[in-house]
Design a protein around this nucleic acid. Structure first.
Lengths: 162, 162
DNA sequence: CAGGGATATTTGCAAATGCATCTAAACCTG
DNA sequence: CAGGTTTAGATGCATTTGCAAATATCCCTG
């Protein structure tokens, strides 16, 4: 099953997807896994009036204090215009608060409110559950290695971003 | 504020997201990474008239021969109704072909056409590039371990699906 | 083998999405 | 320090999305 590392690899010869196989192709696997992770949150989110972008915003804001909207877009992996509207709704619902940046009057910082924190805390057990489930039976050191690899990957693909 | 008695931690004592930190939380990292992976394909997809769902469909069909639509939805991680419409467009563009299942007349199988294969082959180098980039500097054995963990995770979260 | 329930796919419709564009403010550079 | 350029964020608009319901077929039980 495991190919012993081939002695030499031609610089550019990219194997086809069919040769790799879907179930050996990391992006495919990651999509499948994240698809189910998100699906497992959907009901709980819906009952809180949240969409995936709104949930991600709350998650990020629960950890990062008062980012600029542009930064929040990166962290939460949500398109700027989508984010702008998501923030409208979250603000209307009293879950976040926009605040003009003191230094740059073009910029806006976003803060989570107590109600926002409460909403996220309602959701969190479900996220933790999905997380627990996905790592079920995977030993701690393997988990750590996995997360370590993810961190390297994020560094690799990050442009020159945050 | 009414900070109702900050009670003991919930039964299983799930740490909070803030305690874990975004950059140690696998689903967050995976989202970030996949977000960029998808973004890196966007231009090429657009120039081929493809959206993410349509691209995924072609990718899966390049590997799996004639799945049922319902199976294709799972493999490609696309909502059924979205998939149904994506297939309309792909068929109109001559990239896939729907074919009634011989055994079950409710069911439909989907096949990629030569034009579809060509379209996907145009896209593939970009996908391979993004893939190469994300694993840059990560040794082979670490990659294999990573993919192995992903496979376990997929098994964990899969319902009783395909 | 009829009738009720399950399954496969499509479709109606309201909401969400994202590109392109707009406004406003900041930053340069000569 | 004026004029062009960049940056932050919001918005118009056409498209896409996804839930719920519709349609068609199949399967099982009595």
């Amino acid at each position: 099953m495991t190919d012993q590392s081939p002695p030499e690899k031609p610089p550019q010869a990219q194997p086809r997807l069919g040769e790799i196989g879907l179930s050996n192709y990391a992006p495919y696997l990651m999509n499948r896994i994240m698809g189910r992770y998100n699906a497992s949150l959907r009901d709980e989110m819906a009952s809180l009036g949240l969409t995936t972008p709104k949930m991600r915003v709350l998650a990020v804001l629960s950890v990062i204090e008062g980012p600029l909207i542009r930064e929040l877009a990166v962290f939460s992996v949500v398109e700027q215009s989508t984010l702008s509207r998501a923030l409208d709704q979250l603000a209307t619902d009293g879950l976040v608060r926009r605040e003009a940046d003191t230094a740059d009057s073009r910029a806006t910082r976003v803060f989570i409110t107590d109600a926002g924190r409460t909403a996220f805390e309602t959701l969190w057990p479900r996220m933790a559950e999905a997380h627990t489930r996905m790592f079920r039976g995977i030993p701690d050191d393997e988990r750590r290695a996995f997360v370590g690899t993810l961190q390297k990957m994020l560094t690799n693909i990050r442009k020159h971003e945050i």
